[in-house]
Design a protein around this nucleic acid. Structure first.
Lengths: 248, 248
DNA sequence: GATAGATAGTGTATAAGTTACACTTAATTT
DNA sequence: AAATTAAGTGTAACTTATACACTATCTATC
């Protein structure tokens, strides 16, 4: 049983990425505050999903807890990517106003640990209904208003994801269990903001023996149905080589 | 001016790596505690160099402060690599004893942010004299007794370093301004625990136009003197390509 | 039921990069 | 003068990356 006594100076924030077969999205909370008397909108922006950690709770566990509360899902890819501790993290007028609203008279110094979560977009869409949480295209984040240093955290998460995706097969976490090669290619293109030659991409994938073709095919699509593939982490772990690419 | 009021639940720990042209080393503090009456050695192990952050101090600034205090050096490579927040970070008898010794009646929950520092070994050796801080070969860490979760933190730092070194030219931070290609090769071999073919290694380096030969040569060595080279970050930044190695 | 529209799926030639491998050179020490 | 030590150099075989265009198979529409 977890005590609900929080560690005052530490929080975790989850940057949850999803892919809808078209573009990369990020899950954000809509933050709104209206003046009680006039009804005037004082704050209308977005935050990441985060919270304090409990006294008797590991950092990772706190991130898992938040993720579970939000999506109802377990066993998601979740990994720490950075800690954020600038002194001016909570400095804007809106943020100060918000803290007052939630009964924090003044802001403690809070260091937050950023977690990166990857999820097949289509798995959570239903669970979100009714909550003030939505998918937003990553590309639009730059034009959105965000609380605290959360925009910065999203950028850093994206950077970390792009780096990691080039070196480890974690992109598959953003796809359902079965996927087509075109979906996989679109995913990499969305992740890296690049575009690849179809034949060369497929040649490359076919060398990865842990991307395994299934007997299943698409159904009901108005074109030649694509074959489904599966990512096998087991095969990956068995066959992975420790390439040293930058040097020799 | 920095207040000396600390943030109670947060610290930074620096894992400082150095290279002595032979092997990779890490800078550790010798921790010793003797029984006041009997003189019996109660604790004799090693810790990382770390400390709490101050209320009005950025995380990075705290790490820089610690590094400066310890080595007297500025402008070192320093980068966050992970945060550590396991609940049982401070659980051993020795650690409890130590906390009592330094007048902490009980251990607060402390989340520490790990920083990775790289330094040319030879630059600091002198500055250390008299302090209870020493270079230890990284390979020997596994057999050493270490405080708290510091051994784990060293391992994670090394992992992060090995990953990063394959993708970015940060290894040069471990060498003096001028270095020979053999030194560079030894460094990569020490970092990655691998060994490379001399000719192929040099061919690779010669393609990196940011590793620039100087007119200087070694002197007083009992063999053919080697040419000195220089790493130019400027040239690197200008010419770097965004390779996508894992996928296409 | 024929046709249009949409995406899936496939091969080859050239260029670039990686690998494996052994001897000569230039300094100091004996 | 000879021995010792590490520096410095080229090539051929193999592997990987790149550029590029058409056919196949399904649904929807007329």
């Amino acid at each position: 049983m977890i005590s609900h006594k929080i560690v005052p100076n530490v929080s975790v924030d989850c940057v949850i990425f999803g892919f809808d077969f078209e573009k990369l999205n990020v899950l954000l909370v809509d933050r709104e505050l209206k003046d009680e008397k006039t009804g005037k909108v004082l704050i209308n922006d977005h935050t990441l999903t985060g919270y304090h950690i409990y006294e008797d709770e590991d950092l990772d566990a706190a991130a898992y807890r938040i993720l579970k509360e939000l999506t109802g899902l377990d066993n998601l890819f979740l990994e720490q990517f950075a800690a954020f501790g600038q002194i001016d993290r909570v400095s804007s007028e809106k943020d100060q106003l918000w803290l007052k609203h939630i009964n924090k008279e003044f802001a403690d110094r809070i260091i937050t640990v950023g977690y990166l979560a990857l999820i097949d977009n289509t798995r959570v869409t239903l669970k979100l209904s009714g909550k003030n949480v939505q998918w937003y295209p990553v590309n639009e984040v730059k034009d959105m208003e965000m609380a605290f240093d959360h925009k910065h955290i999203v950028y850093k998460a994206l950077e970390a994801l792009q780096k990691k995706v080039k070196v480890e097969p974690i992109a598959f976490e953003l796809l359902p269990d079965y996927f087509t090669l075109s979906q996989l290619q679109k995913l990499y293109e969305a992740l890296l903001g690049a575009s690849f030659d179809k034949r060369n991409f497929r040649k490359k994938i076919s060398q990865m023996h842990y991307v395994i073709p299934l007997k299943k095919k698409q159904k009901g699509v108005p074109h030649k149905p694509a074959q489904y593939y599966l990512f096998s982490r087991e095969v990956y772990e068995k066959t992975k080589k420790n390439r040293i690419s930058f040097i020799v």
